[in-house]
Design a protein around this nucleic acid. Sequence first.
DNA 1: GTGAAGGACGTTATTCTATAACTCTTTTCC
DNA 2: GGAAAAGAGTTATAGAATAACGTCCTTCAC
Lengths: 166, 166
Amino acid sequence: MTEPSPSRASLACLPHDHSHCVSDALASAERICAQLGVRLTVLRKRVLELVWQSHKPLGAYDILGVLSGEDGRRAAPPTVYRALDFLLETGLVHRIASLNAFVGCNHPGEAHQGQFLICRSCHAAVELEHPAISTAILDGARTVGFQVEGQTVEVLGLCAPCQAAA
Amino acid sequence: MTEPSPSRASLACLPHDHSHCVSDALASAERICAQLGVRLTVLRKRVLELVWQSHKPLGAYDILGVLSGEDGRRAAPPTVYRALDFLLETGLVHRIASLNAFVGCNHPGEAHQGQFLICRSCHAAVELEHPAISTAILDGARTVGFQVEGQTVEVLGLCAPCQAAA
DNA sequence: GTGAAGGACGTTATTCTATAACTCTTTTCC
DNA sequence: GGAAAAGAGTTATAGAATAACGTCCTTCAC
């Protein structure tokens, strides 16, 4: 379930050319949907783009607010939630339970559990892939005979730039 | 932050004399509130008792439903949420973000991060205390210079009895 | 005891999050 | 072309949480 690879994390709150994040994410999404034989419609792509506008997890109603009044489009909650459900199922976005919000997945197409470092100052969510965490969870679960199917790991704190700023 | 102690977990979904869980929890609560110099009022104690009625995380509106119509008490959401906020602050209950629900703390009075194994079949939430998980999280955070302030670890799956039943 | 101060709770209203159920349109595929 | 299915619009509602204000009750100084 967890291959012994080194820990990885996204740039997120570090300064970077964010347009690359967006274009890469959209390109990956096209490729993955093609592979899966599912349709990345205009709406779904637009929602994915909005989620990727920053590394801050975005609420469904934030997305709704942007969509409404855009083009001639009228949007209601189910419109957004259906698109988000699709993006969650295809692994293109993650849901942050502790924030009721959604964030783009940094390495879609690869099986992984979402692990997030959420900065309480700049609100960026850094996706971490630290196999030791999953391993420790599987380990702990095994001690009580629990069969793991999904992991929610959300860590609140201060990212490096915000520590420096404070 | 995490002392090297062996992994622990509650009985939860295993058969056990649950009345002990409730009475122990209430006794601990009395003691802890006395130590802290805060008031475990009738309402707060009642909410704590309801949360401990089972090991299944309970929604705020479930609690509200029970309280309403009880005695001559009339209850509105803020009544329940204030009691829950108090119980969270004093460490007597935990909130399960992925369920929007609350569950009694198995070892109140001890500093710890809540780690939960949630059975998708019987809905019991087993509180785990597996220091290796916290250690791995701190470790992963350190690799990107993230300063951890709080951990949310919620694992979905099947508990041992439910695996056997299936 | 009295009265001020603060804590706890009641009450009303509202916001935010999410889904149900139904309709219509668009795409796919034979 | 036409049936079937997928996608999206629409309306309504459920579920989770908080804001703001009022009232009562405890506590503690005097």
